[in-house]
Design a binder for these strands. Structure first.
Lengths: 197, 197
DNA sequence: GTCTATAAAAGGATAGAC
DNA sequence: GTCTATCCTTTTATAGAC
């Protein structure tokens, strides 16, 4: 019971910190989001914060992991096909801090030896896999031709999604979901097969 | 003459610095590229570097400006159509530092009040304009249907290009040019008109 | 134009008390 | 689990000599 309570409290505090980190990132950007300010938002000192996350990098990675887990549960299911991705993007519009963290941190992490590089490599492969599954379902239900090169289409859609997020951060009036939906309609209805197959 | 020589020397040093900045960014990333190391590469102290560029941000923006200017002269011409973009991307593969700077710095600069935000906003509008011009040329020469929504296609191509660059930084074996060429063939040959028009 | 010297700040991380 | 206190590093930027 005491032990249980301690764990529960620790987990609650961690969750609180993850939310605070998002707030600060949304306001100042990932680069200028200091541990001190994140800590202050949850009534901790910087040292107190470091007790929960060994390093700053672990904190950011944990934020992104939690996001992926939530998105997976809330929006993804193989039978939903492409709609799953569209729902994720529609949801992203409501969490600009998360979009900013993803865009900024994924860019920074591409450098060799960066502590978050492996995370993004693995995440990319994982997302590609999910998207390919979703596209296969679209083929099975015959909303999409059977000849398309799925890995190519998946990577292209991911690239467009990532690029759109930067455009959206610069101009939030852009409707990311509508644009992706339009891209998807283009892929679906395409007579691309002879080219993309 | 003396004056001329001074200017020439100053300009040469500036150019040297821009190259050095790219080297350091390629190795450590934009975030970890310190003024000190850039200065050291050209045999200057950090203070000496600051004489040429008032701030770090001006230096980075200048690097990107010089790149755009060069790309414009070397690769872009309205009558070349989409090939201009393909050539730029093919060239990008040979300058990873530039790609890294662009990806990382454009992400960071999306934050409100960032000194480079205006630069990226303007650059984005400029690139979109060039691409639309190029696409119009493709239509004129009837390599592409007349019904397509050009601004939409342009933004989508830019998004895909930007997203591909992140993928490429994580995995340099990806052939960005081939993927964009394939996207372009898809757009071109598409029976998208009823959807995208 | 370049250097030396220094400011002045901010950052992440750790040790040890409670 | 959290705080206080502190360390140490690194960074950008400036002032003034040469």
């Amino acid at each position: 019971m005491t032990r249980r309570g301690q764990y529960a409290k620790g987990a609650a505090k961690r969750a609180e910190i993850l939310d605070a980190a998002l707030e600060v990132v949304a306001e100042h950007g990932c680069r200028k989001a200091s541990n001190r300010e994140i800590a202050a938002r949850v009534g901790l000192t910087q040292a107190g914060l470091m007790h929960h996350f060994g390093t700053r990098e672990e904190l950011f990675i944990e934020v992104l992991r939690a996001r992926d887990q939530r998105d997976l549960e809330q929006f993804y299911a193989p039978h939903r096909g492409f709609q799953g991705l569209l729902d994720v993007i529609a949801h992203n519009v409501t969490v600009p801090g998360l979009v900013r963290l993803y865009v900024e941190y994924s860019a920074e992490a591409t450098i060799a030896g960066h502590p978050a590089r492996a995370f993004f490599e693995e995440r990319f492969a994982w997302v590609r896999g999910l998207l390919i599954e979703a596209l296969q379902q679209e083929q099975i239900e015959e909303r999409m031709g059977p000849e398309l090169d799925l890995p190519f289409v998946a990577d292209l859609v991911i690239a467009a999604t990532d690029g759109l997020q930067v455009q959206w951060l610069l101009d939030p009036s852009i409707d990311m979901t509508a644009r992706l939906a339009r891209l998807w309609e283009g892929v679906r209805a395409s007579s691309w097969p002879t080219i993309l197959a």
